[in-house]
Write a protein that binds this DNA or RNA. Structure first.
Lengths: 220, 220
DNA sequence: ATTTATTTTTAGCTATATCTAAAATAATTT
DNA sequence: AAATTATTTTAGATATAGCTAAAAATAAAT
């Protein structure tokens, strides 16, 4: 069974809004996420129900089926692999990749994705630090802590940022706090929660509690 | 003005069938090339006429406009750049790339194509030896000769093959006669036209007139 | 120069994916 | 509990891109 591009996009939106198929999702919220009208969503939900990628009872909401989750994860996998390609090979900036990956994720070729994965050396995380599902849809989720919650002398690796506005990403780029950077908390100021951070065993960096609250770290 | 994927595919087909916009093309031939029905083609020609990428007088055939040629060349450029990527970076075989490139050519991002071009080191020819138009649609066409028409001691570079059946491509791969290979005609047998070829100043190779007739060489 | 055959176009239908406006259902408030 | 509000669905459009069957125009053959 094959899905259209539109169906893939709906499934992906539903997957994200439902927190991986755990929660129920409102028609209105899907419409907001997809930037279209609730009436269009209702229609699509009926179709997705017929294809059995969701279980749909009208007026009562929906549940993703196992099949639906697999499809969503495949699309997410492709999106994130392409993001890695764009950043690592074509030197795109973090904030330039989304639009293009949004198109590339719908290219249909199992061989292409296998080869791309291999070419990129089987990355486990995308440039924003989000995990890349493997070909079976398995995700190796790492425990994450907000940087502002870490204690002095604790170490880890930056794995994600919460605020992905262009301005914030530019700031991070400037200070060298890229995804994958190894960090160590050197000092913490009591009264405002600001931090002194060692980045990649070289640069030290002062950071406000607010900024640190937007950075996720895998502790090690 | 933007074109849909279907419109891009029609323009590309028309460009090829009309030999770069020079000849007129029959509705039936477009239908055959696109594997759909003449009625569908008529309809699309009307639309393409309205968008002024072709000049269309019903029953009388069509002419590509300058705008139409530019669009077609951009699509061809993207297709061939992706083919280079698939073969050189992802290790696709010559006969595996077409289908996937057919999808990738419709990805819409000027930046992506610029970066891809740069990443591939501004290739001038695709893996089949067909020229890649530059971003302005200019094509550096090289004079080509069939290998069987070359004389003893003449040299050149293989730029294309006419028969692109998987069997033929496998044969060429096996004997090392890939696109770009530098060749020299060492000897020519009078009575059957078969040739002795030096490939890349290393291997010598015997080749029937028939095989040589399917290989195009840029003389140098 | 008619007739016949071929090619091309039109008319009307189907499917996808969107929309607006109205109707139906569920949730909230008084 | 009834009325009001919010959410969701249906009904009926529109646009794209294909189809079949029939009509119209052009080309070929007698």
């Amino acid at each position: 069974m094959d899905l259209t591009t539109a169906e893939e996009n709906y499934l992906k939106a539903i997957y994200h809004l439902s927190d991986g198929g755990k929660k129920s999702v409102a028609t209105n919220d899907i419409a907001a996420e997809m930037k279209n009208k609730p009436a269009s969503v209702s229609d699509m939900l009926r179709k997705l129900g017929e294809k059995e990628v969701i279980e749909y009872r009208k007026y009562y909401g929906l549940q993703m089926t196992e099949s639906g989750k697999r499809f969503a994860l495949q699309t997410i996998r492709k999106h994130r692999l392409w993001e890695v390609f764009l950043v690592e090979k074509l030197n795109f900036a973090w904030d330039e990749v989304h639009e293009v990956a949004e198109q590339l994720e719908h290219i249909n070729s199992a061989l292409l994705i296998q080869r791309l994965d291999s070419y990129l050396n089987y990355p486990k995380f995308d440039p924003h630090g989000d995990p890349i599902p493997d070909e079976f849809g398995d995700v190796r989720a790492r425990p994450r802590v907000h940087l502002n919650e870490m204690e002095i002398n604790q170490t880890g690796q930056i794995v994600a940022v919460k605020d992905s506005s262009a301005a914030f990403l530019r700031y991070l780029d400037k200070v060298g706090a890229y995804i994958g950077a190894r960090i160590k908390v050197l000092d913490k100021v009591e009264f405002d929660g600001s931090l002194e951070i060692l980045v990649d065993q070289k640069k030290t960096l002062f950071m406000s509690k607010d900024v640190a609250g937007n950075i996720l770290v895998q502790q090690s």
